[in-house]
Amino acid sequence: MAEVRATAAAPAAKTKPAPTSAVKKAQLEDRVHVWPFLVRNEFICTLIVMVLFTVWSIVINAPLEEPANPANTPNPSKAPWYFLGLQEMLVYFDPWMAGVVLPSLVIVGLMVIPYVDINPKGSGYYTFRERPFAITTFLFGFLILWVTLILLGVFFRGPGWNLFWPWDRWDPHKVVALTNVDLASLDIGGTGLPFKWLGNPKIFGVELIGLTLSVLYLGVLPVVYYLWKKPTSPTLQTLGPVRYAIVVQLFLIMMSLPLKMFLRIAFNIKYVWITPWFNI
């Protein structure tokens, strides 16, 4: 049967022990008829879902507001709820990054998961212990960076994209001081740290500070970690430099969002890297 053939011909013979004939035999014997067992489940599930959505649709009407009016911009203008995580990123990144580059990387990043996760364990059953890094990273990305930001956008963002409690009245005139500075001109406690002491950053080259930091973050940090850990880590050895590079870049770019959130909330940092063409 197709099933058996595919399992046996799995190209992953390298990473996954080929099923022994005893296992295959057990798999073949532990089978149930789709009719009635699966079809019954599907039928019951269909009934429940249909009843649920019918009742929902009878009780709650879909929204329909005033006719479209290009001259009257509502405040706030919110994207559909499933994109509010992206809209939330606009607070921390410019549109080309938050609206184009990062979403594309989310899609690409999801697609490469199967090719960079070389851990053969934990396939076809629930486990945390056998794949802690994969699960933690995914949960962080999905639950914190995606779902939580959507909830924040739906329930806590009001006029001017300011934060409101759900029970607050939306005050369109709420004043929020714009005190954000760029990293190069940050001046902690008048000490000139971390970069102000370099003098007028314009002369020294603001671009250089951001460039150096970005190269350190995306280039040097991962390489140092790789060279340091590789001799003792079998995972890194099998992962190899190419897959490691892909994983680490995607991971660090994902972590740049919470990092920038932290910099914004703690130090009011707007941009880390300023260039004549783009700012990050």
Binding site: A6, P11, I113, P114, P120, K121, S123, G124, Y126, A134
Partner: peptide, 16 residues
């Protein structure tokens, strides 16, 4: 699908 690791070989492409 992620939590059950069902994207692992031979199902990589179906995840894509």
């Amino acid at each position: 699908v992620f939590m059950t690791g069902s994207y692992k070989s031979p199902r990589e492409f179906n995840w894509v």
